[in-house]
Amino acid sequence: MARLPAKGVAVLLGCLVLWEVLARKSTALALYFPPASAVLATLATIVGNGELLSHVAASLARFAEGYALAATLAVGAGLCLGLWRPLYALFEPLIELLRPMPSPATIPIAILFLGIGDEMKVAVTVYACSWPILLNTIDGVRSIDPVLMNTAATFRLRPWERFWKVVLPGASPQIVTGLRVSLAIALILVTTSEMIVSNDGLGFYILDRQRSFQIREMYAAIVALAVIGYGLNRLFLAVDGWAMAWHKGLTRKEEIL
């Protein structure tokens, strides 16, 4: 795993200091713009007394369920669509129409059909996450070199062997790219849907504290959200670096050429 560059950390700390100084200087803004130190202290408090943890757990549960479902469905569908052109031709207009539509627009529909519970939040997360995974998987399958497919043919691999030994690993770098993009999208949709209608979760908490003028708590939860997003991404990169080491090596070599 790549370590944080020292200069980057310095810029980050610089911004925090700037935040602190600006917030302390302007008393007029004090209500809306608490200093960084106050926000971090509040974060420590609400984490310490357990207030935040149930909301984090609720959000993460929705995230995990939605993301896992989206990954399974979209990778499966993408492999089929990528392998079978007539099927893709059939679905292409639909995909091209739905893809550019902002995913939060599905929330009202999901509320109509699934109510305001977890099902709705998971469903919109699955919908939004599926696109990058689906499109990248289709593309990954299609970009497998024909020589490789012909190699599988001359070695007389059966269809399912071709799938496991050539198609899936061959498309995996692109599938991983899709999964990585969707990681952030999942978090966005979980939070957004929680802000619209919920009684727990980080999205709910942030909006609720804003409405009740607990501005420090609001900022603290936003910071927590950023840290969670960062942590999930780092976790993803760690798994990716381990599972896709061959691809890292391959692309590094291509960069030199």
């Binding site: 070199d145 020589v147 012909n150 050539v166 691809h247």
Partner: peptide, 18 residues
């Protein structure tokens, strides 16, 4: 069965993940 073709683009015929 029993016939194998070695491709002109041999580098592309190897599995980079193996």
């Amino acid at each position: 069965e029993g016939l194998i073709l070695l491709f002109q683009e041999y580098n592309k015929s190897l599995m980079a993940w193996r």
